[in-house]
Design a protein around this nucleic acid. Sequence first.
RNA 1: GCCCGGGUGGCGAAAUUGGUAGACGCUAGAGACUUAAAAUCUCUCGGCCGCAAGGUCAUGUGGGUUCGAUUCCCACCCCGGGCACCA
Length: 969
Amino acid sequence: MNNYDHKKIESKWQETWNKNQTYKTAENSDKPKQLILDMFPYPSGIGLHVGHPRGFIATDVYSRMKRMMGFNVLHPMGWDAFGLPAENFAIKNKVHPRVAVEKNIQAFKDQLSVIGFDYDWSREINTTDPGFYKWTQWMFIQMFNKGLAYESNEPVNWCPVDKTVLANEDVEADGTCERCGAKVEKRPMRQWVLKITDYADRMLADLDKLSKWPEGVKEAQRNWIGRSEGSEIYFNLKFTTHPDWNERRDADGNPARLPVFTTRADTLFGVTYIVLAPEHPWVTLALDENHKDVIDNEDEVRAYVKQSSEKSDIDRTNAKKEKTGVRIEGVVAINPANAQEIPVYVADYVLANYGTGAVMAVPAHDERDFEFAKKYDLPIHEVVRPSVVDHVNPPRTDKATKVRRNVHAIVYDPKTEKYLIIRNSKFGWDTVVIGGVEEGEDLIEAATRELQEETGYADLEFKRFLGNPVQASYFAKHKDENRNAIASALYFELRSDAKIKIPTDGENEGNENVWVSKSEFVPGKMVNSELPYWLARLAKNNDEAYVESGILVNSGEFDGMDSSEARKKITEFVGGKLMATYRLKDWVFSRQRYWGEPIPMIHCEKCGVVPVPESELPVMLPEVSHYEPTGTGESPLAAIESWVNIPCPKCGGAAKRETNTMPQWAGSSWYYLRYIDPHNQDAFVDKDKEKHWMPVDIYSGADHATRHLIYARFWHKFLFDIGAVSTEEPFPRLEFLGYILDKNGKKFSKRDGNGIDPTDVVNQFGADAFRLYEMFIGPFEQTARWDMNGMVGTLRFVEKVWKISEKAKNANGATREGIQKLLHKTIKKVSDDIEGFKFNTAVSSLMILANEIDSDYQISVLDLKAFLKILAPFAPHVAEEIWHELGETDSIHLSDWPKYDSNLVIDDTVKLGIQVNGKVRAEIELAKDESEESVREKVFAMDEIKKWTDGKDVKKFIYVAGKIISIVI
RNA sequence: GCCCGGGUGGCGAAAUUGGUAGACGCUAGAGACUUAAAAUCUCUCGGCCGCAAGGUCAUGUGGGUUCGAUUCCCACCCCGGGCACCA
């Protein structure tokens, strides 16, 4: 054997594998299947950097192992090539997008080819291929036929730079375009929209079944779908200036009424006004030319609506901004719970596209309403009382409950900055001064009296109440009854130390006045369960809404009811309905750009919207002279009259093609299915083949939690519903790939010029060392930093493998027991680690084994081959080369995965640490199943142990076989 | 603000999920080989005390449970990500 020369062996084997079709997926096979999938790349003009192959190498390793384990493996690759970046690249470089994409794909393939992947290239797909997008269009028509694709004229996100509409998912949280960073505007425009919200509940519920998805991705999807349960409640309107309007009825015979969505129907009695979004249909109606007489301050309202329409979304949705609004004069709403007449406002803190675009405002129990009410001086009515259950003496279910009024006196001494508490030595507790309110007493009198009786302090100044009462439930032992204490807190400051004398027996027995600092004046150190509320109100000066659940008050017959029960009961009571609403919006599906799938629809003057007949698919993307966006809301396709104007397929009359195209996410929503049957002309996938290969066994890729993975799940569920696929979820196991950053923790970017071309690294270190390093760099799902120094380590490892193979081959001896055992342990570990996507520790264990072999080369050729086999997925070229050097003629990658001998994996003896009082003091080698008696004897005979135990009492001797020995003295 | 992740040597990280913390790799230092350098090989490498044996502190911070805690519980701090005027 010569010296290790990666250039020679890598190109040799890549050519051989190609020639022999080593990795071709069998069309008919008795073997069990594995569909191992990467998120297919977007062939950008910049090319790949070292971060991209990480995921591809991982699935390559995984698929190679599975193939050797006897699976029929489908590990395909393809291109997601429609969409804005490809088009923008093409415009900038003055080439046709198709030409640019072809060039980019070739560049990507060149970069990938040197790494030595096991793709079956005969199944390559490309979303811009008419044979592919024919089916994307076909699926769109199926959605249209099921009513899931519809036209809408709602205001949509418009990117002024890319000159196209964006889906909500394409807009960043700060209101900028995800692609170009421009501020996104709202424009009313005719759009195709997919009714993804119809699937919201199922997508949410089925997340729970995806046990092999990272929790974070599922959580992001839950947030994105944003289901909240609540009630729709109807507020009738009363027109005060123009009562004739009160007689009007809608189509269902209802009077004018406003539906509102709320999650807090329990606070209905606390509603003090109604707020409508500026875009609310009722506001639009009232401002309409034809309804001039409905409200009194039309001009003012119109001005406000105009003003907020001119605000950007970012300004509109900034919670920190001060709230504004205008009262609509001449109309009031009727609270259905108590028939109270309440004012109606229009304010832009209410969003038109969430819920019903109208809210019932409960300033006492909602922060936003509270802020608005304070500003416009609207009433604040408490209807939910905070409620605590005493953690020391919780109420008993078998006892009667009595209600009692309490006062809590919070006393502060500004001079010492301390608080007064009572420390009771008899019961061992600290408490604030507490007392009952007696007949005919007000709260201040009661608190002042209690302070004097219990502490003697007589010169106190009452400052203020700490908000509304809090209810505390507890069991009062001395009275053998449950108590609901309605406690009010009163805040006092100490004026002077003047005291009166108090008796120290009776009720005061064991009591002692103590002044404590703020840090001790906290729940946990003191028994009062209400204390957190008092402290918060002390800090916030009572200037806060209580937004939690509690016990209802001031709510008529619902007083005393728990919030959660009241939500249902009050909704029923006022004839509302329980329902859920979603943050998720329907998917805006059209783009006013050239480089996308034409939407296969025809607009006929007579028949309306008619889908292109399926026999005429695909609707080919026509050639145009200008593919730059027009900016008018029409795509460049609209300019080609010969293409646009066609006879209606239904009536033969004059009709026009739809000129919008689909978004980039269309093809990627189902591409994985096409790999199964990529050349099928009659169906997007043959049904039997689909049944055989689906679901995808492993889906690996970067963070697309809220875009691709939402769309693809929705799309797949639709295909399932029309019987086109056999599973409800496409990807039962998702492996989330961490990014690779540069040495300084920065993302690789064209602008920073910090990209590292994998081809350069492969040229220098070889594909095998590169692959090993990409796997060794850290946990697969974790972000990693690229360090060229690390490449040295894996290259040394490959060279070591080369060296030990040659030495072992020449030695041609038997395997030493130590190596034998380690080999079998390593087989187990590598198998388990690859299965669990823990590639970094798999590589590490291979290194450990190589080091062990390197110590004396006492390994048989047979065992050496087993080592090569488990190395082969990571370093396919060098493993193949040595394999053939050892006389094999078939590919190592088609050989069988070694099995480990379970007897060899377990050690007969084991080294245990010996702890004395929790500290490791010595180490001992014992038989695996050594008896406790013999262990005890051996341990206490050891000098290192005698040193610690001599002359001491051994209180405890713990021996956990195979784990630890622990001595307590 | 709410919800997910995460915090371990100079660095990337391990640790059989309660049992000897720091495997494996990088960097650094010392040495061998060499005319020299590179490559390679050997040794050292968490902090502090010590010539050493050894001791002691140490897995973001502070408490707790336990014979024993990186792992479990409570409180808090920091970093990354998702959502956020969502009623």
